[in-house]
Design a protein around this nucleic acid. Structure first.
Lengths: 187, 187
DNA sequence: CGCCGAGTTGAACTGAATCAAGAAACGTGG
DNA sequence: CCACGTTTCTTGATTCAGTTCAACTCGGCG
């Protein structure tokens, strides 16, 4: 069974007809470590579901690299948010391991929203989930110390340190590499 | 013309039929300054559109009051986000002026989503807009100094200092009242 | 072998919090 | 309409988490 379809179904039930329509529009990719999935906002017009591997979304702020998001297996990555904010510089999505992805083009998604009320519903519920995730991240940046944020990240993704370089994790947590290194030293 | 319906239409077109169905479910309120609109998450099951006035959403974190959001005329306020996070303590919505509101109950909204694909669509687009707003706020907390955040808030709502006490603004910006006072002193 | 990126460690600095005490504004009752 | 108490705002001194700059270590790879 297609894992992406299964992922969508966890948000709201889909009919066989809707599932078949989605499946027709999916694209499958198997790409090597360090592949640059997207190199610029203007060119990115798909969302990606990660079947296997890790991807990292990043952008540049005053010529410094900011890691915005990690995508692990079973989650979605793509310019859902920053795509709407053109003032931000170009960003990209990099693969940190050999990765299997399933993508769907925005135009196809829009057409599916038009055709199927039930798919529009999944889209709405997904957006609300994203709101909750973002709100949690906002709270964590606003109220938790750097050490607490790191602890919580480890709770959620215990293997992250084996899969993602320290500097990327630090940037995701909104701190410098140096600070994260010190946090780890105080085991 | 109902301002709330007009607000919804800015996100996606609605048929006369859908508009009529929404209008049937709206409730109108005219409430005084300092009224406690909602006093606990568990009891709040509506979203509120502000026709006139200012409302403020807040919750308690370690017995300190956190101002989460301001609702000015033309915008929506309600437990859209924190309602999904029961671990947060009770929160409430207070009116900072005499305020005219239009509310709709979650159950009614859900029923409208079921009946009208086009309303579900407005719901999805609204959720995506909320994502963009939250992402901007996250960026501002993560990268801007307290002074920059205050500057930007003033740009967006020049009259806010006349309508909202300093302490609430500070809490919304994620800083203390003391710090905001100092920022203002350095004109 | 020597270089290079990733991570660690030290010293100095800074933005904002905290604690604490005043000053100004506000509202409620006499 | 004034007097008093309470809330709101300002200002000063101190502390702290995290940044910056810089030097150094370690492992891998051409």
């Amino acid at each position: 069974m297609n894992k992406f379809i299964h992922f969508l179904q966890t948000f709201s039930h889909l009919s066989q007809e809707a599932i078949a329509a989605v499946e027709q529009k999916l694209n499958y990719h198997s790409l090597p470590k360090n592949h640059e999935l997207v190199s610029d906002t203007s060119k990115c017009n798909s969302i990606y579901f990660i079947e296997q591997g890790v991807a990292r979304q990043l952008y540049y702020k005053e010529s410094k690299e900011i890691t915005d998001w990690f995508g692990f297996e079973g989650s979605v990555i793509g310019p859902v948010v920053r795509g709407y904010q053109p003032k931000n510089g170009p960003y990209s999505i990099q693969l940190l391991e050999n990765t299997k992805l399933i993508s769907i083009h925005f135009d196809d998604l829009q057409a599916l929203f038009d055709r199927f009320h039930e798919i529009e519903r999944v889209g709405r519920i997904l957006a609300v989930h994203a709101i909750v995730v973002l709100q949690k991240r906002l709270d964590s940046i606003q109220f938790e110390t750097a050490a607490e944020r790191y602890e919580n990240l480890l709770k959620e993704y215990p293997a992250i340190t084996q899969r993602v370089p320290l500097g990327y994790i630090a940037s995701y947590l909104g701190i410098t590499q140096v600070t994260l290194s010190r946090i780890r030293a105080d085991h």
